[in-house]
Amino acid sequence: MADTAAPPAVERSLRGFVGAGYDKGRPLLVQAAWFAVLNLVFVQWWFPARWRPALLRAFGARIGHRVLIRHRVRVHWPWRLEIADDVWIGEGAWLLNLEQITIGSNVCVSQGALLCTGSHQRRHRTFEFDNGPIRLEPGAWVAARAVVLRGVTVGRGAVVGASAVAHRDVGPGAVVTTGVAA
């Protein structure tokens, strides 16, 4: 009979965390400027949706045409964001892009969705980063309050259903759900 014992628990020392190997991609002054603009202007309901792509471009994002970004959308690092044409990003979505997020054409990221490129090495004593890029291929849909985790590609025309979590690649045309009967 095979030994199925769980590996020993890791004694964490978060005080020792150094973020080894992680580069934020811009100087501290640019990071601070973006956070000021993000929180004072970009996420606000009164800031016109048609100006949001231009503001992201000013901070290094590559944004296509006819991109609609609603209010309360949070983008961690604009310089690590690429969005193709005809994309919708719904109210309250969070693009936590410590690494690159690439969004293909005709993609919908619905209200409250989270695209999270960051994680940690769970077996590492100081819990160092374990980040990876996210790619949403053309025609994909990340539905309301869904989560796409680091290193995942959501294939062409695939759907990550409402409140579902995509923790591994989603093939073209596939649908990920929470397992609740419709």
Rank of each mutant, 00 (worst) to 15 (best):
M1N: 07
M1S: 13
A2R: 11
D3T: 10
D3H: 06
P7G: 13
P8L: 03
S13H: 13
S13T: 07
R15S: 14
Y22Q: 14
D23V: 05
K24Y: 14
G25A: 14
G25E: 09
R26L: 10
P27C: 15
Q31A: 08
W34K: 03
L38H: 12
N39Y: 04
L40K: 08
L40R: 06
V41L: 15
V41P: 01
W46C: 15
F47S: 04
P48R: 08
W51S: 08
P53E: 12
P53L: 11
L55Q: 02
L55P: 02
F59A: 00
I63T: 08
G64Q: 08
G64R: 08
L68H: 08
I69F: 01
I69S: 09
R70A: 15
V73E: 12
H76K: 09
R80N: 13
L81G: 03
E82S: 07
V87Y: 10
I89C: 10
A93V: 07
Q100D: 06
S105A: 15
N106G: 08
Q111C: 07
Q111T: 11
G112Y: 06
G112S: 09
A113K: 11
A113C: 09
L115S: 00
G118Y: 03
H120M: 03
Q121P: 02
R122T: 03
H124S: 15
E128C: 14
I134M: 04
I134K: 00
R135E: 00
A140I: 10
V142N: 04
A143N: 03
A146L: 04
V147M: 11
T153Q: 07
T153Y: 03
T153A: 05
V154R: 11
R156S: 14
R156F: 07
A158V: 09
A158T: 09
V159M: 06
H167R: 15
R168V: 10
P172W: 07
G173Y: 10
V176C: 10
G179H: 08
A181S: 04
